[in-house]
Design a protein around this nucleic acid. Structure first.
Lengths: 153, 153
DNA sequence: TCATATTGTATGTATATACATCTATTGTGC
DNA sequence: GCACAATAGATGTATATACATACAATATGA
Protein backbone atom coordinates (compact mmCIF):
# COMPACT_ATOMS: atom_id res chain seq x y z
CA UNK A 1 0.00 0.00 0.00
CA UNK A 2 2.98 2.32 -0.16
CA UNK A 3 2.48 5.47 -2.15
CA UNK A 4 4.23 5.18 -5.49
CA UNK A 5 7.51 7.01 -5.76
CA UNK A 6 7.13 6.96 -9.50
CA UNK A 7 4.27 6.68 -11.95
CA UNK A 8 3.33 3.05 -12.28
CA UNK A 9 1.65 3.58 -15.59
CA UNK A 10 2.04 6.05 -18.41
CA UNK A 11 -1.28 7.70 -17.72
CA UNK A 12 -0.83 8.04 -14.00
CA UNK A 13 -1.51 11.29 -12.29
CA UNK A 14 1.51 13.29 -11.30
CA UNK A 15 3.57 11.55 -8.72
CA UNK A 16 5.62 13.08 -5.99
CA UNK A 17 9.32 12.89 -6.63
CA UNK A 18 11.41 12.25 -3.54
CA UNK A 19 13.59 15.27 -4.21
CA UNK A 20 12.38 18.78 -3.44
CA UNK A 21 14.58 20.24 -6.12
CA UNK A 22 13.32 17.88 -8.78
CA UNK A 23 9.74 18.68 -7.90
CA UNK A 24 10.51 22.33 -8.21
CA UNK A 25 12.31 21.97 -11.50
CA UNK A 26 9.44 19.94 -12.88
CA UNK A 27 7.05 22.65 -11.83
CA UNK A 28 9.28 25.20 -13.43
CA UNK A 29 9.16 23.29 -16.71
CA UNK A 30 5.38 22.96 -16.57
CA UNK A 31 4.79 26.62 -15.87
CA UNK A 32 7.42 27.79 -18.31
CA UNK A 33 5.65 25.85 -21.04
CA UNK A 34 2.44 27.80 -20.43
CA UNK A 35 4.17 31.15 -20.68
CA UNK A 36 6.34 30.24 -23.62
CA UNK A 37 3.37 28.88 -25.51
CA UNK A 38 1.62 32.20 -25.21
CA UNK A 39 4.64 34.41 -25.69
CA UNK A 40 5.90 32.60 -28.75
CA UNK A 41 3.01 34.23 -30.57
CA UNK A 42 4.88 37.45 -29.97
CA UNK A 43 8.25 36.03 -30.96
CA UNK A 44 10.00 35.78 -27.61
CA UNK A 45 10.11 33.68 -24.48
CA UNK A 46 9.62 34.29 -20.83
CA UNK A 47 13.24 34.89 -19.93
CA UNK A 48 13.64 37.59 -22.49
CA UNK A 49 10.28 39.08 -21.68
CA UNK A 50 11.25 39.19 -18.02
CA UNK A 51 14.47 41.00 -18.79
CA UNK A 52 12.67 43.56 -20.88
CA UNK A 53 10.19 44.09 -18.08
CA UNK A 54 13.01 44.67 -15.63
CA UNK A 55 14.74 47.14 -17.90
CA UNK A 56 11.47 48.93 -18.45
CA UNK A 57 11.11 49.28 -14.69
CA UNK A 58 14.61 50.47 -13.85
CA UNK A 59 15.44 52.40 -16.98
CA UNK A 60 19.08 51.48 -17.02
CA UNK A 61 21.11 48.86 -15.21
CA UNK A 62 24.41 47.10 -15.49
CA UNK A 63 24.76 43.37 -15.83
CA UNK A 64 25.74 42.88 -12.21
CA UNK A 65 22.59 44.44 -10.92
CA UNK A 66 20.40 42.41 -13.22
CA UNK A 67 22.33 39.34 -12.20
CA UNK A 68 21.59 39.97 -8.54
CA UNK A 69 17.97 40.78 -9.20
CA UNK A 70 17.30 37.61 -11.13
CA UNK A 71 19.62 35.45 -9.05
CA UNK A 72 21.09 34.53 -12.38
CA UNK A 73 24.75 34.03 -13.04
CA UNK A 74 26.28 37.10 -14.58
CA UNK A 75 27.78 35.12 -17.44
CA UNK A 76 24.36 33.83 -18.35
CA UNK A 77 23.24 37.38 -18.77
CA UNK A 78 26.13 38.10 -21.08
CA UNK A 79 24.56 35.72 -23.56
CA UNK A 80 20.92 36.63 -22.99
CA UNK A 81 21.54 40.34 -23.18
CA UNK A 82 23.56 39.67 -26.29
CA UNK A 83 20.50 38.09 -27.88
CA UNK A 84 18.33 41.01 -26.90
CA UNK A 85 20.87 43.35 -28.38
CA UNK A 86 20.97 41.35 -31.59
CA UNK A 87 17.21 41.72 -31.81
CA UNK A 88 17.65 45.43 -31.33
CA UNK A 89 15.55 45.44 -28.19
CA UNK A 90 18.24 46.69 -25.84
CA UNK A 91 21.20 48.95 -26.20
CA UNK A 92 24.34 49.07 -24.07
CA UNK A 93 26.86 51.74 -23.36
CA UNK A 94 29.96 52.01 -21.22
CA UNK A 95 29.50 53.39 -17.74
CA UNK A 96 31.70 55.76 -15.82
CA UNK A 97 33.33 52.64 -14.44
CA UNK A 98 34.58 51.47 -17.76
CA UNK A 99 34.38 47.82 -16.85
CA UNK A 100 30.62 47.91 -16.73
CA UNK A 101 28.00 48.08 -19.40
CA UNK A 102 24.76 49.90 -18.84
CA UNK A 103 21.76 48.38 -20.55
CA UNK A 104 18.55 50.07 -21.47
CA UNK A 105 15.62 49.20 -23.62
CA UNK A 106 15.32 50.65 -27.11
CA UNK A 107 12.20 51.92 -28.77
CA UNK A 108 11.95 48.65 -30.65
CA UNK A 109 12.25 46.81 -27.35
CA UNK A 110 9.50 48.90 -25.91
CA UNK A 111 7.22 48.14 -28.84
CA UNK A 112 8.11 44.47 -28.65
CA UNK A 113 7.19 44.42 -24.98
CA UNK A 114 3.91 46.15 -25.60
CA UNK A 115 3.11 43.59 -28.27
CA UNK A 116 3.94 40.70 -25.96
CA UNK A 117 2.10 42.09 -22.98
CA UNK A 118 -1.31 40.61 -23.70
CA UNK A 119 0.18 37.19 -24.36
CA UNK A 120 1.93 37.30 -21.03
CA UNK A 121 -1.33 38.31 -19.39
CA UNK A 122 -3.04 35.41 -21.07
CA UNK A 123 -0.47 33.03 -19.61
CA UNK A 124 -0.97 34.46 -16.16
CA UNK A 125 -4.71 34.07 -16.53
CA UNK A 126 -4.38 30.48 -17.70
CA UNK A 127 -2.40 29.54 -14.63
CA UNK A 128 -4.38 31.63 -12.22
CA UNK A 129 -7.63 30.17 -13.40
CA UNK A 130 -6.47 26.70 -12.47
CA UNK A 131 -4.92 27.76 -9.19
CA UNK A 132 -7.81 29.87 -8.02
CA UNK A 133 -7.35 33.16 -6.22
CA UNK A 134 -6.33 31.53 -2.98
CA UNK A 135 -3.87 29.22 -4.66
CA UNK A 136 -2.46 32.10 -6.62
CA UNK A 137 -1.88 34.15 -3.52
CA UNK A 138 -0.44 31.19 -1.68
CA UNK A 139 1.90 30.55 -4.56
CA UNK A 140 3.27 34.08 -4.43
CA UNK A 141 3.91 33.89 -0.72
CA UNK A 142 5.43 30.45 -0.79
CA UNK A 143 7.68 31.16 -3.74
CA UNK A 144 8.82 34.37 -2.14
CA UNK A 145 9.60 32.74 1.19
CA UNK A 146 11.35 29.85 -0.46
CA UNK A 147 13.50 32.13 -2.55
CA UNK A 148 14.61 34.00 0.54
CA UNK A 149 15.33 30.76 2.33
CA UNK A 150 17.22 29.41 -0.63
CA UNK A 151 19.36 32.51 -0.83
CA UNK A 152 20.28 32.12 2.82
CA UNK A 153 20.93 28.40 2.60
CA UNK B 1 5.85 54.87 -1.57
CA UNK B 2 5.23 52.27 -4.22
CA UNK B 3 6.88 48.96 -3.61
CA UNK B 4 9.83 48.56 -5.90
CA UNK B 5 9.26 46.34 -8.89
CA UNK B 6 12.98 45.85 -9.15
CA UNK B 7 15.95 46.16 -6.83
CA UNK B 8 16.80 49.80 -6.47
CA UNK B 9 20.28 49.05 -5.26
CA UNK B 10 22.70 46.23 -5.81
CA UNK B 11 22.49 45.03 -2.21
CA UNK B 12 18.73 45.11 -1.98
CA UNK B 13 16.83 42.23 -0.58
CA UNK B 14 15.10 40.03 -3.09
CA UNK B 15 12.38 41.85 -4.88
CA UNK B 16 9.18 40.49 -6.23
CA UNK B 17 9.14 40.16 -9.96
CA UNK B 18 5.81 40.98 -11.56
CA UNK B 19 5.73 37.67 -13.40
CA UNK B 20 4.79 34.46 -11.61
CA UNK B 21 6.84 32.39 -14.00
CA UNK B 22 9.94 34.49 -13.55
CA UNK B 23 9.64 34.24 -9.80
CA UNK B 24 9.38 30.53 -10.10
CA UNK B 25 12.32 30.23 -12.45
CA UNK B 26 14.42 32.36 -10.17
CA UNK B 27 13.52 30.10 -7.28
CA UNK B 28 14.40 27.12 -9.38
CA UNK B 29 17.83 28.56 -10.07
CA UNK B 30 18.42 29.35 -6.41
CA UNK B 31 17.43 25.91 -5.21
CA UNK B 32 19.20 24.11 -8.03
CA UNK B 33 22.41 25.84 -7.02
CA UNK B 34 22.17 24.38 -3.54
CA UNK B 35 21.72 20.86 -4.80
CA UNK B 36 24.32 21.09 -7.53
CA UNK B 37 26.86 22.50 -5.13
CA UNK B 38 26.51 19.48 -2.93
CA UNK B 39 26.15 16.90 -5.66
CA UNK B 40 29.12 18.09 -7.64
CA UNK B 41 31.25 16.57 -4.90
CA UNK B 42 29.93 13.26 -6.19
CA UNK B 43 30.45 14.14 -9.83
CA UNK B 44 26.89 14.68 -11.02
CA UNK B 45 24.06 17.15 -10.89
CA UNK B 46 20.51 17.12 -9.70
CA UNK B 47 18.89 16.25 -13.02
CA UNK B 48 21.01 13.17 -13.48
CA UNK B 49 20.66 12.20 -9.85
CA UNK B 50 16.91 12.50 -10.18
CA UNK B 51 16.87 10.24 -13.20
CA UNK B 52 18.93 7.62 -11.45
CA UNK B 53 16.59 7.78 -8.48
CA UNK B 54 13.62 7.24 -10.74
CA UNK B 55 15.23 4.30 -12.49
CA UNK B 56 16.15 2.82 -9.14
CA UNK B 57 12.51 3.06 -8.12
CA UNK B 58 10.92 1.62 -11.23
CA UNK B 59 13.59 -0.82 -12.30
CA UNK B 60 13.06 -0.35 -16.00
CA UNK B 61 11.24 2.25 -18.04
CA UNK B 62 11.09 3.56 -21.55
CA UNK B 63 11.80 7.14 -22.43
CA UNK B 64 8.16 8.03 -22.87
CA UNK B 65 7.29 7.03 -19.36
CA UNK B 66 10.17 8.95 -17.88
CA UNK B 67 9.19 11.89 -20.01
CA UNK B 68 5.67 11.85 -18.59
CA UNK B 69 6.89 11.40 -15.04
CA UNK B 70 9.27 14.31 -15.15
CA UNK B 71 7.06 16.46 -17.36
CA UNK B 72 10.13 16.75 -19.49
CA UNK B 73 10.17 16.73 -23.25
CA UNK B 74 11.05 13.33 -24.59
CA UNK B 75 13.80 14.70 -26.78
CA UNK B 76 15.46 16.25 -23.76
CA UNK B 77 15.66 12.82 -22.25
CA UNK B 78 17.30 11.45 -25.37
CA UNK B 79 20.31 13.64 -24.56
CA UNK B 80 20.29 13.23 -20.80
CA UNK B 81 19.93 9.48 -20.94
CA UNK B 82 22.70 9.48 -23.51
CA UNK B 83 24.98 11.16 -21.00
CA UNK B 84 24.07 8.67 -18.31
CA UNK B 85 24.80 5.87 -20.73
CA UNK B 86 28.14 7.38 -21.64
CA UNK B 87 28.99 7.40 -17.94
CA UNK B 88 28.04 3.75 -17.79
CA UNK B 89 25.34 4.43 -15.22
CA UNK B 90 22.41 3.23 -17.30
CA UNK B 91 21.91 0.62 -19.94
CA UNK B 92 19.27 0.44 -22.63
CA UNK B 93 17.80 -2.39 -24.62
CA UNK B 94 15.11 -2.69 -27.24
CA UNK B 95 11.63 -3.50 -26.02
CA UNK B 96 9.06 -5.79 -27.51
CA UNK B 97 7.80 -2.74 -29.32
CA UNK B 98 10.96 -2.18 -31.25
CA UNK B 99 10.52 1.55 -31.42
CA UNK B 100 11.06 1.89 -27.72
CA UNK B 101 14.14 1.63 -25.58
CA UNK B 102 13.98 0.31 -22.07
CA UNK B 103 16.37 1.90 -19.64
CA UNK B 104 17.67 0.49 -16.41
CA UNK B 105 20.42 1.37 -14.00
CA UNK B 106 23.70 -0.52 -14.12
CA UNK B 107 25.76 -1.63 -11.15
CA UNK B 108 28.02 1.35 -11.68
CA UNK B 109 24.95 3.58 -11.68
CA UNK B 110 23.80 2.05 -8.47
CA UNK B 111 27.17 2.65 -6.84
CA UNK B 112 27.24 6.19 -8.16
CA UNK B 113 23.83 6.85 -6.68
CA UNK B 114 24.84 5.43 -3.33
CA UNK B 115 27.89 7.66 -3.34
CA UNK B 116 25.83 10.74 -4.15
CA UNK B 117 23.11 10.00 -1.67
CA UNK B 118 24.59 11.73 1.36
CA UNK B 119 25.35 14.84 -0.69
CA UNK B 120 21.77 15.02 -1.82
CA UNK B 121 20.66 14.61 1.78
CA UNK B 122 22.96 17.42 2.76
CA UNK B 123 21.34 19.67 0.18
CA UNK B 124 17.87 18.79 1.42
CA UNK B 125 18.98 19.57 4.97
CA UNK B 126 20.47 22.90 3.96
CA UNK B 127 17.22 24.02 2.42
CA UNK B 128 14.98 22.52 5.05
CA UNK B 129 16.90 24.17 7.82
CA UNK B 130 16.18 27.59 6.36
CA UNK B 131 12.57 26.82 5.55
CA UNK B 132 11.72 25.22 8.86
CA UNK B 133 9.51 22.18 9.15
CA UNK B 134 6.34 24.11 8.49
CA UNK B 135 7.80 25.88 5.50
CA UNK B 136 9.13 22.62 4.17
CA UNK B 137 5.76 20.96 4.40
CA UNK B 138 4.03 23.95 2.91
CA UNK B 139 6.50 23.91 0.04
CA UNK B 140 5.71 20.31 -0.80
CA UNK B 141 1.99 20.94 -0.83
CA UNK B 142 2.17 24.13 -2.78
CA UNK B 143 4.55 22.77 -5.38
CA UNK B 144 2.42 19.70 -5.79
CA UNK B 145 -0.79 21.68 -6.21
CA UNK B 146 0.83 24.09 -8.59
CA UNK B 147 2.20 21.31 -10.73
CA UNK B 148 -1.22 19.76 -11.04
CA UNK B 149 -2.74 23.12 -11.89
CA UNK B 150 -0.03 23.82 -14.41
CA UNK B 151 -0.59 20.49 -16.11
CA UNK B 152 -4.28 21.26 -16.43
CA UNK B 153 -3.74 24.82 -17.63
C1' DT C 1 52.83 55.43 -6.79
C1' DC C 2 53.25 50.83 -7.46
C1' DA C 3 52.15 46.07 -6.53
C1' DT C 4 48.25 43.46 -5.53
C1' DA C 5 43.51 42.39 -4.73
C1' DT C 6 38.98 42.96 -6.32
C1' DT C 7 35.50 43.52 -9.61
C1' DG C 8 32.63 43.67 -14.09
C1' DT C 9 32.32 41.36 -18.05
C1' DA C 10 33.55 37.98 -21.84
C1' DT C 11 34.77 33.32 -23.52
C1' DG C 12 35.22 28.26 -23.50
C1' DT C 13 32.84 24.38 -22.29
C1' DA C 14 29.21 21.45 -20.72
C1' DT C 15 24.52 20.30 -19.45
C1' DA C 16 19.34 21.34 -19.58
C1' DT C 17 15.59 22.35 -22.23
C1' DA C 18 12.14 22.46 -26.04
C1' DC C 19 10.38 22.59 -30.81
C1' DA C 20 10.37 21.12 -35.72
C1' DT C 21 11.31 17.50 -38.28
C1' DC C 22 12.85 12.92 -39.60
C1' DT C 23 12.88 7.72 -39.44
C1' DA C 24 11.37 3.40 -38.09
C1' DT C 25 7.81 0.85 -36.23
C1' DT C 26 3.25 -0.14 -34.82
C1' DG C 27 -1.78 0.43 -35.06
C1' DT C 28 -6.22 0.95 -37.87
C1' DG C 29 -9.74 0.77 -41.32
C1' DC C 30 -11.00 -1.17 -45.37
C1' DG D 1 -2.70 -7.30 -46.74
C1' DC D 2 -2.26 -2.46 -47.69
C1' DA D 3 -2.61 2.45 -47.35
C1' DC D 4 -2.48 5.77 -43.93
C1' DA D 5 -2.42 7.47 -39.23
C1' DA D 6 -0.22 7.46 -34.88
C1' DT D 7 3.71 6.72 -31.93
C1' DA D 8 8.74 6.21 -29.96
C1' DG D 9 12.96 8.00 -30.45
C1' DA D 10 16.77 10.58 -32.78
C1' DT D 11 18.65 14.75 -34.83
C1' DG D 12 19.14 19.74 -36.00
C1' DT D 13 18.84 23.99 -34.00
C1' DA D 14 18.26 27.52 -30.59
C1' DT D 15 18.03 29.37 -25.96
C1' DA D 16 18.99 28.96 -20.78
C1' DT D 17 22.13 28.01 -17.43
C1' DA D 18 26.48 27.79 -14.66
C1' DC D 19 31.41 27.16 -13.73
C1' DA D 20 36.37 27.90 -14.70
C1' DT D 21 39.06 30.98 -16.52
C1' DA D 22 40.80 35.14 -18.82
C1' DC D 23 41.05 40.15 -19.34
C1' DA D 24 40.70 44.82 -18.39
C1' DA D 25 39.71 48.37 -15.17
C1' DT D 26 39.25 49.93 -10.58
C1' DA D 27 40.22 49.88 -5.63
C1' DT D 28 43.50 49.28 -1.86
C1' DG D 29 47.44 49.07 1.07
C1' DA D 30 52.13 49.92 1.92
Amino acid sequence: MKSPAFAEQPGDALFVLPCACQNLRRLSRVVTRIYDQELRRAGLEITQFGLLTALAAVGEANQKRLSAGFAMDSTTLTRTLGLLRKQGWVHSRRGKDRRERLFRMTGAGSRQMAMAQRHWEQAERRLRKELGDTGWKNMKETVSRMTEAGMRA
